[in-house]
Amino acid sequence: MRTSITPGQVWLDTDGKRIHAHGGSILEIDGTFYWYGENKERSAPGSGIWHWGVRCYSSSDLYNWTDRGLIIPPEPDDPASPLHPATSMDRPHILRHPDTGRYVCWIKVMSPVGQRSTVLVADDILGPYRVVRQDFKPLGMNAGDFDLVLDPTDGKGYHYFERVHSELICADLTPDLTDVTGYYSTHFPLVQPPYVREAPAYFTRDGLHYLVTSGTTGYYPNPSMVAVAPSYHGPWRELNDPHPDDPTRSSYQSQISCVFRHPHKQDLYIALADRWLPRYGASSEAAVAMHAERFRPMGGHKPGPWSELTEIDTSIADYVWLPFRFEGERAILDWHDEWRIEDYA
């Protein structure tokens, strides 16, 4: 029985198995927390398996998680399916429609012809889900890492996504949350990876809208960035790396997938992050030098030898969950070997 959160340590479910809910998020429904994400349990090197569906866990305390199974199973018998385990399916995000109660899940799939989106719906958080929109390009764009946002006052939805490898887009969702309307805004235009922002994670606090993003370096960690704006569509103002005390500039060897505001605490915002490569020694002198080289000013950038650093085995990826601390507008993530939700009012 767990009584605390220990960032970076192996996290087991109530059956003693490694938790696989990567690149996902948390929903609270009728007092129960549901944590869902990519199931990487079969994604060992050489397996040819990128994912094995979307898995969900439930909890009453955010510490102890019960496996609720594959809410969106893979489709191994259909190579053309976006859910085929060899496809690069990433970052499921689910919204609950405020009027119908229906659950709407978006996923992205990296394919040989570009990045595509697929939308599924279900009447229950645990499924079954059915595809209602498949292999499409929102706004005609290749949509990469993304987040979905629902305004709590009017129920309007927003889709933040990386327009692959150029800028970040905020697009209004249709009333049923399964498509974009055509109205959008563009943000953080940059020339190339690793500077292009991806992995947007949205939250709002004290009337400000926040986005936390990472650079574009594949599974290898890099510095995150916090920006604030007066509205969903900006304009966004860059503030800070939320990990200022991390000398490796690797976001504590992790990438944030979402920010979860605890519904029963006054001011507890939790950054949920994946440590995709737990064997990657980001604290070593070599890693520090590599990060300094990779993120030198534009014009002096040289690609780092990423493929030589470590074997990419996402089947053993871990999690780094940390609470935000705020200094005025600045959102900061201090390192904690262990922390407890009960310590927050």
Rank of each mutant, 00 (worst) to 15 (best):
V259F: 14
A282N: 09
S254L: 14
A229P: 00
P193E: 07
L277S: 02
D176C: 03
L272A: 12
V228S: 03
Y220D: 07
T204Q: 15
T216Q: 10
V288G: 00
G300C: 06
L208W: 15
E198C: 11
L277W: 02
M290V: 07
G300T: 13
A227I: 03
Y183G: 05
R197D: 07
M225F: 03
L168M: 15
S251T: 09
P193M: 12
P263H: 02
Y269L: 08
T213I: 02
R197W: 10
R275D: 10
P278K: 00
A282G: 12
S224I: 03
T186P: 01
D241W: 00
V259E: 12
T174S: 15
A271V: 11
Y219K: 00
V228A: 07
A286G: 06
P194E: 04
R279G: 15
M290D: 13
P247I: 03
S283K: 15
R294L: 10
A287P: 04
D176P: 04
L239D: 10
Q253M: 13
P221Y: 00
L268S: 05
P223K: 02
T213S: 14
Q192V: 08
A287I: 03
T204G: 14
D172Q: 13
T181M: 04
T204M: 11
H262M: 08
L173Q: 15
T217C: 12
Y184H: 12
I169P: 10
E167V: 10
I256T: 13
Y210T: 09
L211Y: 00
R249K: 12
D274K: 02
V228N: 01
T178A: 01
